[in-house]
Nucleic acid binder design. Structure first.
Lengths: 337, 337
DNA sequence: CCACATCACTGAACCGGGTAAGTTGGGGAG
DNA sequence: CTCCCCAACTTACCCGGTTCAGTGATGTGG
C-alpha cells in the first residue's frame, strides 16, 4: 500500500516530474493534452501531494493554528469556541487548509506553542483569542513575524489584524431595552476581568447606566464558569435592594443564574429578568428561554479565517468589525412586578 | 527573521549536520561533550526542527486527525467532544504530537478527509468517533492501512483498535436505581438510532426492563439536539399513562426535557424523575441539578490517544474497556408521588 | 532561407532533516 | 611494531515536491 508520488505519475505518463508538477498546479509549461492525461492518471491512482514535501520546498504548511486557553471544564460547555471553530473550517476547508489545535493552561504556554509551531513550520498563521490588555502574545507574534488575526477587542494589537464586534453598542441596546421595560436596578455578571472585551463591556455598561441616570449599575466579576455565575448571582440576590435584571457575559453563567433564581423561589421574569450575552442553543433550551445578545459566531469565525488567509498571502489586513450584535428577546425578560 | 536549521547549528559548533542530527535525537555517534555543546547552541538560537523536513525523511507527521461529523449547532453545546479533545491533548502534547481537526457533514466526507490526510502524509493516525453499524469508514481505514482507534462500541471493527465503555451495565444500573425508588413507568429518549452505542443502549434498556417486569419500557429515538429532546419529551408527557422517569442519552436533551416538564407545570423530581447520560457541568448548572451517568470523558480521550500512539508505533492494539460509568444521584430523581 | 521567438518539455538543484556507509585517530592486544 | 577495533565523526544520498535554467522542435516574419 505504497502511497503514490509524482514520480509514479511521471513514469506512467512518460514525462518528467517537473512536467507533472506543472500540470497538477495549473502552471504553464505543459500542453493541454498532457495536462489532461496527467490529471486523469493522478485521479486514477488516487494521488495526493505529500504535504511535507510541498511545505519543505514551497514554504507553506497549509495549516493554521488555534490554541484554547481555558480549563476543559468550561471549554466543553461553552458553545462559543465550537461555533468559532466550525466557522474557521468552512473557510479553511474550501482552501484545503488544515486546522491544528492545542489546549493550554496559560498565555505563557500559548506563546511557547506559537514558537514551537512556527519553528517547526507546522503552521502558516495563528488565530488568537481571549486577548488581554498588554497581552504577552502580541510582541512575540510581531517578533516572530508570524501571521495572525486577533479575535476580540478593539484594542491595541499593533500591526496585527483584528476582528471585533461592537460590544459597547450591544450592551447599550440591552440596557436601554431593560430600562424601557421599566427596570431601574440592573446588574451585570462579567467574564474574566483581564480580558479586553470584558473591559470594553464594563466601560460601556457603566457609561450607558450613568447616561440613563441608573445608580445601581453594579458589575460583579466572574470567570464564565457556571459556579462563579451562581455565586455572583447569589451575592446579587441576597442584598437588600436586589436588582430586577441581570446581564450575564455568557450563556453558561446566565443559565446558572436562572437556576439560582429558581432555587431561591424567585420567578423569572416576574421577579428577575435575565439577559445572556452570546446567544446559543443553550439559551433556548432552558425554561424560560433566555433573552440574549445574538451574533453569528460561525460567520465571525469564517471572517477571521478569511482575514488570516489574506495575511498569510502577504496582504495588509486592518481592523475589521464583524457582523452586528442584536438583541433576541425571549421569555426571560419582562417588566418588573 | 530566518528560522534556524541544523546547518546553522553545525556551522556554529564546527561540526557536520549529520553530527547535529545525531546529537539532537539522542543517537550514538557523538561524544557527550559535543552533544552538550550542540544542545546548548540549539537552545540558545531557539532551534525547532522543521516538521516538514522531518516528516519527509522520517515518514512520521507527528500529528493525528479527528473529524467531527455533527452539525455545528449541536457540536458547540455538547460538552462531550471538547472533553474528549482535552483528553487527547494531554496525551498528545506530552509526546509533542499535534491534533488536526476537521468538521464535516457526512460519514462520506469523513472518508474523503481520511484519504486526503493520509495521502498528504499530514497525519499518522486518526481517532474515529460516532461509529455506526456497517460503518463505511472501517473498510477504508483497513484498505489505507491508516492507524486508527475507534471510540464507541463494542462492535465489529475488524483489526482496528477500539475503546468502549460499558453502556449496558450503566443503563442497567440506572434502571435498577429508578425501580428501587419505586418507578414502574420508565421511558428513554435516545440519540441517533444508527449509532452503534445507541443500539447497544437500547438493547440493554429493553433487556433490563423485561427482566424487571416493566412493560412500559419505551425508547423514543431523537438526535442529541435540544429540539428533538423537547419534542420527544412532550410526546411522552402528553400521553395518558405518562412515565414517571425518563432517561436521556445526553445532557443536552435531558436539560431540554427538564424545561419541557417545567413548562408543562410538572415538578421535577416530584412528578417526573430525570436521568442524563454523560454527566457534564451542564447537569449541575440547572435547577434541580440532574442525576447523571458519569464517566471521565477526558480520561477516555487520553486513553484513546495512548492506544492510537501505540498503534502508530506498530503495536497490536486490541479492544479496550475504558473506566467505569457510575451513577451520580442529584436532585432530579426521587420516588414518584 | 535564416534569425528569432515560442512552446513543451527535461534535468538538476534545491528545501531541511535522517541515516547508511565511509573515514579518521587513538588505544589496546598480540 | 603492527594489526584491529571502536568511538567520533564526515560524506553523501534519500524523502517528494517546486522551480529554474536549459534544449530541441516548431512556427513566424522579413
Amino acid at each position: 500500500m505504497k502511497r503514490p508520488t509524482i514520480a509514479d505519475i511521471a513514469r506512467r505518463a512518460g514525462v518528467s516530474k517537473g512536467a507533472v508538477s506543472y500540470a497538477l498546479n495549473g502552471q504553464p509549461g505543459v500542453s493541454e493534452a498532457t495536462r489532461k492525461r496527467i490529471l486523469s492518471i493522478a485521479q486514477e491512482i488516487g494521488f495526493n501531494a505529500n504535504s511535507a514535501a510541498r511545505a519543505l520546498s514551497g514554504a507553506r504548511a497549509r495549516a493554521v493554528g488555534l490554541t484554547l486557553c481555558r480549563p476543559a471544564r468550561i471549554l466543553g460547555i461553552e458553545p462559543w469556541f465550537m461555533g468559532l471553530i466550525s466557522g474557521f473550517e468552512a473557510e479553511l476547508g474550501a482552501r484545503s487548509y488544515a486546522l491544528t489545535l492545542q489546549v493550554v493552561a496559560t498565555p505563557e504556554q500559548e506563546v511557547e506553542v506559537y514558537r514551537r509551531w512556527w519553528g517547526e513550520r507546522r503552521i502558516d498563521g495563528v488565530i488568537v483569542t481571549d486577548i488581554r490588555e498588554g497581552d504577552v502574545r502580541i510582541p512575540v507574534l510581531q517578533q516572530l513575524q508570524l501571521p495572525a488575526v486577533v479575535i476580540g477587542g478593539p484594542g491595541d494589537t499593533g500591526p496585527i489584524a483584528q476582528i471585533w464586534s461592537d460590544d459597547a453598542g450591544a450592551i447599550t441596546e440591552a440596557v436601554r431595552y431593560l430600562v424601557a421595560l421599566g427596570h431601574h436596578r440592573i446588574a451585570r455578571v462579567s467574564g474574566n476581568a483581564d480580558l479586553l472585551h470584558t473591559q470594553n463591556r464594563t466601560k460601556a455598561f457603566e457609561a450607558v447606566c450613568a447616561s440613563l441616570g441608573l445608580d445601581h449599575a453594579l458589575t460583579i466579576p466572574a470567570d464564565y464558569t457556571g459556579e462563579e455565575g451562581s455565586r455572583a448571582t447569589r451575592r446579587l440576590l441576597i442584598g437588600g435592594d436586589r436588582p430586577t435584571a441581570i446581564i450575564y457575559d455568557n450563556d453558561v453563567m446566565a443559565v446558572a443564574g436562572l437556576a439560582v433564581a429558581q432555587e431561591m423561589g424567585l420567578s423569572v421574569p416576574g421577579d428577575l429578568s435575565i439577559v445572556a450575552w452570546d446567544d446559543s442553543p443553550l439559551c433556548s433550551l432552558v425554561h424560560p428561554p433566555l433573552t440574549a445578545l445574538s451574533r453569528d459566531i460561525s460567520a465571525y469565525g469564517a471572517q477571521a479565517a478569511r482575514e488570516l488567509l489574506a495575511a498569510i498571502d502577504g496582504q495588509v489586513v486592518g481592523n475589521v468589525e464583524a457582523g452586528r450584535v442584536h438583541l433576541t428577546p425571549r421569555g426571560s425578560t419582562a417588566p418588573p412586578r
